[in-house]
């Protein structure tokens, strides 16, 4: 039994390792933002499209068709009489598009995050509703790693409990953690000041 549980623990943890590094390092970045340089690389250019368009999605499609490096999820679509603006986003890269209906020129400002910025964006990226296909595959990986984290915890508890030398101190630490965390969570959920 122990060998099987240990194997499951190892199997799940070894698969999840790069993702856990990403989550851990980006969590440090978010908690201590001033420790890191997060300036993205910015590039701007104009793309000539057909004038007179009003549909943000059609404009985004046109932009992506004309420049194949631009891809991602369409968000923040804003329309006015003269302009249509939107964002085309994949983790770490944001294309801000501002389309002028009179001239048909789409001004594209592309911001590419550095490694830390990319880790930050990946940390926040989840959910199968996202586009494109790579984002859905990422969502699947997040689901697998999240489940793995729960199972790694559960198998870890089992393996610890089978070890007599660490049982007493471990039980004290686990009790402190569970009592503390559950108390705080219940108080917060109930809206205690």
């Amino acid at each position: 039994m122990y060998t099987t549980i240990r194997s499951i623990h190892l199997l799940l943890a070894s698969f999840s390792l790069p993702f856990l590094v990403m989550y851990g390092v980006s969590a440090v970045q978010m908690s201590h933002n001033s420790w890191f340089q997060m300036k993205p690389t910015v590039q701007e250019r104009d793309l000539p499209l057909a004038p007179g368009q009003t549909d943000g999605r059609a404009i985004a499609r046109d932009v992506m068709d004309r420049e194949r490096t631009i891809k991602g999820e369409i968000s923040n679509v804003q329309t006015s009489a003269a302009t249509v603006s939107m964002r085309i986003v994949v983790p770490g890269t944001v294309h801000e598009v501002k389309y002028n209906a009179a001239s048909g020129i789409a001004h594209v400002k592309t911001s590419v995050a550095g490694v830390m910025g990319m880790l930050n964006r990946l940390h926040h990226w989840a959910g199968f509703y996202r586009e494109p296909l790579s984002a859905k595959v990422w969502a699947l990986a997040v689901a697998i790693v999240s489940t793995a984290l729960l199972l790694v915890g559960a198998t870890g508890i089992y393996m610890w409990f089978t070890r007599r030398p660490e049982r007493r101190i471990g039980l004290a630490l686990l009790t402190i953690n569970v009592v503390f965390a559950v108390t705080i969570m219940v108080m917060l959920r109930r809206g205690a000041p």
């Binding site: 989840a126 999240s146 984290l149 402190i176």
Partner: peptide, 22 residues
């Protein structure tokens, strides 16, 4: 082992948070 036991609940919350986001 000890680091895991001291932060066990948080790690479970991280796992649930990932599934909730999914």
């Amino acid at each position: 082992i000890y680091a895991g036991l001291l932060t066990f609940t948080q790690l479970m919350i991280y796992g649930f948070a990932g599934l909730a986001a999914t």
